[in-house]
Simulated scan of single mutants.
Amino acid sequence: MTTISIERSTNTKKKPPQDQLGFGIHYTDHMFVMDYSTEKGWHEPRIIPYQPIVLDPAAKVFHYGQTIFEGLKAYKTADGRIQLFRPRDNFRRMNRSNDRMSVPEIDIDLAIDALEQLVAVDHDWIPDLEGTSLYIRPFVIATEPLLGVSPSEHYKFMIIMSPVGAYYPEGINPVKIHVESNYVRAVVGGVGEAKTAGNYAAALKSQQEAKEHGYTQVLWLDGKQHKYIEEVGSMNVFFKIGGTVYTPALNGSILAGITRNSVIQLLKHWGVPVEERVLSIDELYEAGRNGTLEEAFGTGTAAVISPIGEMNWNGEKLIIGEGKTGQLSKSVYDTLTGIQTGAVEDPFGWTQQVEVK
């Protein structure tokens, strides 16, 4: 096993009140860094005090967007244990994104070791108030100072962490979603299934316009026909129609969410019919009009489960479940967060303990 050096901070930060965390505002005392060059491969893994990074203005990340990231969480249980939720799956997906963006593969065992050590070093930053957690952001940036359009020969792999509360101000209360009919986020064959920064930058204009009209997020339709449901800006989506739960099938332009996969497994475990298939916006609205659309919710690491109470497509509003949180949405949320925090038994082997020495 590669040795990870640790330089402890001598200037610890003041921790914010747990009921005022927000999301991604505060950062822990330390971070993980590892460098890559074509000559050495990935090398010099280290945990150091949280600090700015210095990059050449010509670094390729600034000019060609060669960067990917992940998101996962650490939780503190009622008896003081620390748990990660499906970290290996996050690093597997990270390598799939790396491959699509021509970034060298990262050793997953080393990444897990680095993550566990970093969480252990900053374990006292993990909040324990209900609905809080330690958000973990691994990412890779291209650092070679060269303006030629080609894959970088130098990279940094980093992990930073942030104590967080609810991602959406609504919390577990239903959000309002605008259905985007003009802009395109991703297409099959593009980079929609990679967790790369450009996907999110492409969504900002639509998201900004939606918020101006009172909507929390944007639901994207397919980039070719503007007909088939894909995903919300920060979530995969599920719809309960006539007793069956549907979610768009992964088609190459939709991110393969870890929480999405967890929900599918959980529903099957409960015996709830669930199908991954193509789902058109017309079909969804027709289900809303004839009363068979019972619930809708989004899934993602940041929000876990976010019920959807209203949608707006070309000016036609669709109220779902009287705008209230549905029973299934609440059950999924309670069970997933219960597994993550150790309050509910984990029959799937999703959680991983972090030992603090």
Rank of each mutant, 00 (worst) to 15 (best):
D29I: 03
R137Y: 09
L129W: 11
K73P: 05
H43Y: 14
D107F: 01
A114W: 11
A114G: 03
M94A: 07
G65R: 09
D56M: 05
H123A: 13
F69T: 07
R81V: 12
M31S: 04
W125R: 11
V121S: 06
M94F: 09
A74M: 08
S37F: 03
D113V: 06
V61S: 11
P138R: 03
T143V: 11
Y27A: 05
R93N: 02
M31F: 07
E70C: 00
S150Q: 15
L72R: 08
G24E: 04
N90K: 10
I53T: 14
K73E: 08
I25H: 05
V103C: 10
I68G: 04
L129H: 13
L134R: 01
D109I: 08
T38Y: 12
G24Q: 05
P45R: 11
D99S: 11
H26K: 08
A111M: 10
Y75R: 07
V54F: 14
T38A: 14
I136P: 03
D107Q: 08
V149G: 01
Y36H: 07
E39N: 03
D89V: 08
G148Q: 13
P49E: 03
A58Q: 14
Y75N: 08
D124C: 08
E144G: 02
I112D: 00
P57F: 05
M101T: 05
F139A: 04
F32L: 12
I141N: 01
I136Q: 01
E105I: 09
Q83W: 08
E44K: 06
L134P: 02
L72A: 08
H63K: 03
I106D: 01
T28W: 00
L55R: 10
H123M: 00
V61L: 13
D99Y: 11
F91H: 02
A58M: 10
I136G: 00
Y75M: 13
I82K: 01
I68M: 12
I108K: 07
M101D: 05
G71K: 09
F69L: 13
I106S: 03
A142H: 05
P57D: 02
I106E: 06
M34R: 04
L146F: 10
E44N: 12
H26T: 08
P45I: 03
I106W: 03
E130D: 15
F85T: 04
E44T: 10
L84G: 00
R92G: 01
L72H: 04
L134Q: 07
G148A: 15
P87E: 13
D124M: 13
G22K: 04
V61A: 13
Y50F: 13
V119L: 08
V61D: 04
A114S: 12
G65F: 09
W42N: 00
A58S: 13
R92Q: 12
S37I: 10
L55D: 07
I25W: 02
D99M: 11
D35L: 09
P57I: 13
I82F: 02
F62R: 00
L55G: 04
W42K: 06
D107H: 01
L115I: 09
L84R: 02
S37G: 06
D79P: 12
R46F: 00
S150R: 15
L72K: 09
I106L: 15
R88C: 01
A114H: 09
K40H: 08
V54R: 14
L147C: 01
P57E: 06
I48Q: 02
F32H: 00
E130R: 14
F23K: 03
V149R: 05
G148C: 09
T132E: 06
D124Y: 07
A78S: 15
I48H: 00
N95F: 02
H123E: 14
S102C: 14
